[in-house]
Amino acid sequence: MNSFEIIYDFASSAGFKKLQILLFPIGFFLFTRFLLFLIENDKDEDLFKNPEQQKFKVYLMQYASIFIFIVFLIMFGSKYYKTYNLYNTSLFKTEGFVTNFHPMPEGGHDSERFSVNGVQFQFSDFDISHFGYNNAKSHGGAIDKNKYVRISYIKVNNSNQILKLEIRK
């Protein structure tokens, strides 16, 4: 009997992990809190000259990081919800050998492309916009020419986004 190994499944934590981009503004906010702590505890003004002006700049950076976090949360949250909805309502499936495989170069500047049973797929390591599988062969990805795969996907903006990838063992 043919057994498959699940490489990527949006419905598991793999899709949710792509929201890690939200950690950047949070980290920046925490860094500015640390700077504020340093400014407020620099009694002799050894590190920071004109502490009031420095505090103002740090507060501006904090508000900017909060704003960026909210924008990212709205953008990625809405896309995640839309993708989750499509995963539950409009999922297509195909199974077969990978053909017409065009790997993404290690340095990027191109995309990885291939077909399975006439269905074309294309992705890049550097695009996380639709939460689909995007791990190119040059960066450790599992898709390669002549591999037998089972793919569950959705159609977004005239492209097929892989939401579940299984490879035959």
Score class of each variant (00 low, 15 high):
residue 140 G to I: 05
residue 70 I to K: 05
residue 34 F to R: 08
residue 88 N to I: 05
residue 117 N to Q: 14
residue 12 S to Q: 08
residue 21 I to V: 13
residue 106 E to K: 01
residue 144 D to Y: 01
residue 161 Q to M: 09
residue 81 Y to F: 13
residue 25 P to F: 01
residue 9 D to E: 14
residue 64 A to M: 14
residue 65 S to Q: 03
residue 23 L to V: 12
residue 99 T to Y: 05
residue 169 K to L: 06
residue 75 M to A: 11
residue 81 Y to S: 12
residue 38 L to C: 12
residue 84 Y to S: 15
residue 62 Q to M: 14
residue 75 M to L: 14
residue 20 Q to A: 12
residue 106 E to A: 13
residue 132 G to S: 12
residue 160 N to K: 07
residue 37 F to S: 10
residue 67 F to H: 09
residue 39 I to K: 01
residue 125 D to E: 12
residue 136 A to Y: 00
residue 64 A to V: 15
residue 104 M to I: 06
residue 159 S to G: 07
residue 160 N to T: 13
residue 103 P to N: 06
residue 64 A to L: 15
residue 85 N to P: 00
residue 93 K to L: 02
residue 76 F to K: 11
residue 89 T to A: 14
residue 73 L to N: 06
residue 131 F to G: 02
residue 152 S to M: 05
residue 52 E to V: 07
residue 44 D to W: 05
residue 44 D to K: 04
residue 13 S to F: 09
residue 41 N to H: 12
residue 16 F to S: 08
residue 50 N to F: 00
residue 64 A to F: 15
residue 101 F to R: 06
residue 68 I to N: 09
residue 102 H to C: 06
residue 164 K to V: 03
residue 77 G to K: 05
residue 125 D to K: 00
residue 109 H to N: 15
residue 167 I to R: 03
residue 82 K to D: 15
residue 147 K to L: 01
residue 135 N to C: 10
residue 16 F to H: 11
residue 107 G to W: 07
residue 36 L to E: 15
residue 31 F to A: 03
residue 139 H to G: 01
residue 43 K to D: 13
